[in-house]
């Protein structure tokens, strides 16, 4: 089972949405013997054959624990996916995990002579800025000292990865920046906002979005893991979708709010615990943050099968299934069963 040339694979953050998909896929393709899951809790789909190692990346000696582990298991590829998609109220803990935790994993990987380091990231790291080009390329500098702690931690993790890539050229560091996911069984803070009948928007703004289907994300992740390239890659769907189009296509009612009121209002509501995300995220419905997937196509040979529109359609079909429509989204219906019955797939 060593013919794939990636050696043993260690996965952090395997309980995340994408982490779980990757884990299942790897097991399905017969890599179960080569997998080591490093996490604080055993993943819910764990079977006897998967090695699970408990390491808390927020602890001070996490790097030493990681190093011992990587050496003991003879790991050659580390897939680092321990990131929060949803904003955390405990920003200190998020910072410890995402920024300092990434540093620990990188340091341990470099010291253990790991050959491949694959990190999950977000196209949101470019930040939503008016000055962004219409399609952001990978070499665009990331915003320094972003006021949004969610974004700042991710940017710091990216900076750590870039600095290790420079200092340890023998370790191939690949960073996969995923466009926001939308599709069957995706549940995040933005899908919860979108699930309501009234979807808040900003008065006079209508930015473009990319929505990546989870199947495409999984495919890109596999290509990213079993590759020998280096650098950052935007993982994007085909096409873009404006916010107003998305709202009207899914039968929602937009509730436009003036942007000045929105920033204050959301801050107040967030402080009161009534909304999930701080006001910094409003920038993402104000300015575009659309990434260019050309490099992933050229270098990783990744091409999304779903367009943003199709991702949205699949999500709507999953959230609002229409019982009497024969054949409407068969494929999606199957996908949505995955989280509830993972065992069937594994056996």
């Amino acid at each position: 089972m060593r013919d794939h040339g990636m050696g043993r694979i260690a996965i952090t953050g395997a309980s995340s949405f994408l982490g779980e998909r990757l884990l299942r896929r790897l097991i399905r393709e017969g890599y179960a013997d080569d997998l080591v899951v490093i996490d604080v809790a055993e993943p819910s789909i764990s079977e006897g054959s998967i090695r699970f190692r408990k390491v808390d990346l927020t602890e001070p000696a996490a790097d030493q624990a990681m190093l011992d582990l990587l050496k003991a298991d003879g790991i050659e590829t580390v897939v680092h996916m321990a990131f929060f998609t949803n904003p955390r109220r405990d920003t200190t803990n998020a910072h410890e995990l995402e920024s300092i935790g990434t540093l620990a994993v990188l340091a341990a990987a470099a010291a253990a002579n790991v050959k491949n380091f694959v990190m999950r990231s977000f196209t949101f790291v470019y930040g939503a800025r008016g000055q962004n080009p219409a399609l952001i390329r990978e070499e665009t500098p990331l915003p320094p000292r972003a006021p949004l702690s969610w974004l700042r931690d991710k940017v710091e993790a990216e900076e750590h990865a870039a600095s290790f890539a420079r200092r340890y050229p023998e370790m191939a560091v690949r960073v996969l920046r995923f466009a926001p996911l939308l599709g069957p069984s995706v549940r995040t803070f933005y899908t919860r906002i979108f699930d309501r009948r009234l979807v808040p928007t900003l008065l006079g703004y209508d930015p473009l979005f990319q929505l990546l289907h989870p199947d495409d994300a999984e495919e890109a992740l596999m290509l990213g893991v079993f590759s020998s390239t280096r650098g950052a890659f935007n993982i994007t769907p085909r096409g873009v979708l404006s916010l107003s189009t998305a709202i009207h296509l899914s039968g929602k009612v937009p509730a436009p709010v003036p942007h000045l009121a929105a920033y204050w209002g959301v801050d107040a509501l967030y402080a009161a615990g009534l909304v999930e995300a701080p006001s910094g995220f409003i920038d993402y419905v104000r300015y575009p943050c659309v990434a260019d997937g050309e490099k992933a196509k050229r270098v990783l040979d990744f091409e999304a099968r779903h367009s943003s529109r199709e991702s949205l359609d699949s999500y709507i079909a999953y959230r609002h299934p229409i019982a009497d429509v024969a054949g409407a989204g068969d494929e999606d219906a199957e996908d949505s069963d995955v989280p509830s019955a993972p065992v069937e797939i594994l056996r």
Binding site: A134, L135, R197, L208, G239, V240, S242, S244, T245, H248, L249, G251, K252, V253, P254, P288, V290, R309
Partner: peptide, 25 residues
């Protein structure tokens, strides 16, 4: 109903907007 309002708004929107744009909007 909510649904009817939503459908009416969508119809009004798509009466003068396309469903697809290029990457510049």
């Amino acid at each position: 109903s909510w649904d009817r309002v939503a459908r009416l708004l969508a119809a009004a929107h798509f009466a003068w907007h396309s469903e697809e744009t290029d990457e510049f909007g």
